[in-house]
Nucleic acid binder design. Structure first.
Length: 431
RNA sequence: GCUGAGGUAGCCUAGUCCGGCAAGGCGCCAGCCUUGAAAGCUGGUGGGGUCUCCCCACGGGAGUUCAAAUCUCCCCCUCAGCGCCA
């Protein structure tokens, strides 16, 4: 949620920022929000005047209580107020509800360095690392390869759970765990605290952290409970300090979340239909930060550097793009994507998303900055970035480290986590 | 799941039985005092507005009433005990 005070005091600035999104619906939303706010404030004055009169009369009647009672005309006036007030207050709360609903739907204000563009094709490449290999004849898709290795079963998973699910087996499961532990160790080395969060959240905190428009499309709801499966550990990490006052002196808080992630909407199909690239469930190690407002640009670079380091150590070629105005979601103020090179597809595909959400999530979650136990008026900033999502990273490893004979080299940095195992070779499962 | 106790400002608490301007403490801020600090003293310390004044705010909502933290109803959450359980 953006700062209502800013909407009132510097509407031109907010409007200009929203205009860069090139989506007329936001400008309309903004205009509607301002109108609703003005109407609510006008209505509030009328109600305030009436409440003032009621309080006056009420006070005088209390004073007159022991002295023969209040004059009849006062009583008559007082008795007439509640009905009128009920009507005005109903209108007032309706206007306030409408105002809040509109304001909450406004997207975050974008950082000035976000490049102007219409969609993801206009994201701006800011860094490239490694050599993107040319086409390799006979290179198998990660799904085919996994099945040939005997380390995944997609058909049975589709039967038991539907498409977008998978069974993994044997050493590949250990590789998944190795990747998580590798990323987590890297973050711990850099001052992050590992966090194992709840995998389900109530709706109220969830509304604080996500784009509400996406909510119903993405979230799995637990039937009969006010609980939703998390789409990323970013969400419970952000909600960790819901309603609290964070002491400036303890910031920044660097958290490394580790969890399974659950998503209903998994996007397009085609080349990814089978496999682990687009799935309903995957593991992710996530970086999350609460910080002072001034520090968030610097921390965005820090998170991005950590994410890049994961892929450098894995020796996976990648590039980083600065996500343009037309492709930026509604929560982030600025976002980098790290895109790994998938040789079979001859394309860079997103493996990391690294965002500065400024005060947008924190304000919705009712988190305030404070000092020495005293609440202040400002709101901390939050940032998040993938360290590694194992589904995507494993998919790219299977393409990059695949050998012509159908075996797979284990990336050097992961070997210590696998007891020194250096390759994946076909296995016969006893079932 | 059952039973019980709770939810009041940044924190802790009183007020609820019996309706009438939300009291006190801690912490924090400012001033005085001091070589400096502590202590002490004085004042301030939720949100909003048409800002010497007024309105709102006691978990949320509805109701009764001239008037609700207080009475009635519904709901939410937390804790404790019991039950179940990897």
């Amino acid at each position: 949620m953006i700062d209502l005070d800013l909407v009132r005091k510097e509407p031109e600035k907010v409007e200009a920022n929203l205009a860069r999104r090139q989506n007329p619906k936001y400008l309309q939303l903004f205009a509607d929000a301002r109108t609703a706010d003005a109407e609510w404030r006008a209505s509030l004055r009328v109600a305030d005047d009436l409440r003032k009169r009621r309080n006056e009369l009420s006070r005088r009647m209390a004073e007159a209580r022991g002295q023969g009672g209040a004059p009849a005309d006062l009583v008559a006036e007082a008795k007439a107020i509640p009905d009128r007030l009920r009507e005005i207050e109903a209108r007032e709360s309706e206007l306030l509800g409408a105002r809040d609903a509109l304001v909450r739907r406004l997207p975050n204000l974008m950082d000035e360095s976000v490049p102007f563009g219409k969609d993801e094709s206009e994201n701006v490449v800011v860094t490239t690392w490694g050599d993107p290999a040319g086409p390799v004849p006979g290179l198998q898709s990660h799904a085919e390869l996994l099945e040939a290795l005997g380390m995944a079963d997609f058909d049975r998973a589709h039967r038991t759970s539907g498409s977008g699910f998978y069974y993994l087996f044997g050493p590949f499961v250990l590789l998944d765990l190795a990747l998580q532990r590798f990323a987590l160790d890297l973050l711990v080395e850099r001052g992050f605290t590992p966090v194992a969060p709840p995998y389900m959240l109530r709706r109220a905190p969830y509304e604080g952290v996500t784009d509400l428009a996406d909510f119903e499309n993405v979230m799995y709801k637990v039937e009969g409970e006010d609980l939703y499966l998390i789409a990323t550990s970013e969400h419970p990490l952000a909600a960790l300090h819901q309603g609290e006052i964070l002491d400036e002196d303890v910031l920044p808080l660097r958290l490394a979340g580790i969890s399974s992630c659950f998503r209903k909407e998994i996007g397009g199909h085609g080349v990814d239909q089978k496999g682990i690239f687009r799935v309903h469930q995957f593991q992710k190690v996530e970086q999350f930060v609460f910080c002072r407002p001034d520090d968030s640009p610097k921390l965005l670079e820090e998170l991005r550097a950590n994410a890049e380091e994961v892929f450098r150590r894995l020796r996976i070629p990648y590039r980083v793009v600065n996500v343009c105005t037309g492709d930026l979601g509604s929560v982030a103020s600025k976002k980098f994507d790290v895109e790994a090179w998938f040789p079979r597809q001859q394309a860079y595909r997103e493996v990391v998303s690294c965002s500065n959400c400024t005060d947008y999530q924190a304000r919705r979650l009712g988190i305030r900055l404070g000092k020495a136990g005293r609440p202040g008026k400002s709101v901390p900033h939050t940032l998040n970035s993938t360290a590694v999502a194992t589904s995507r990273a494993l998919a790219v490893i299977l393409e990059q480290y695949q050998r012509p004979d159908g075996t797979v080299e284990v990336p050097a940095v992961l070997q210590p986590y696998l007891g020194g195992r250096r390759e994946l070779v076909p296995e016969t499962r006893p079932h």
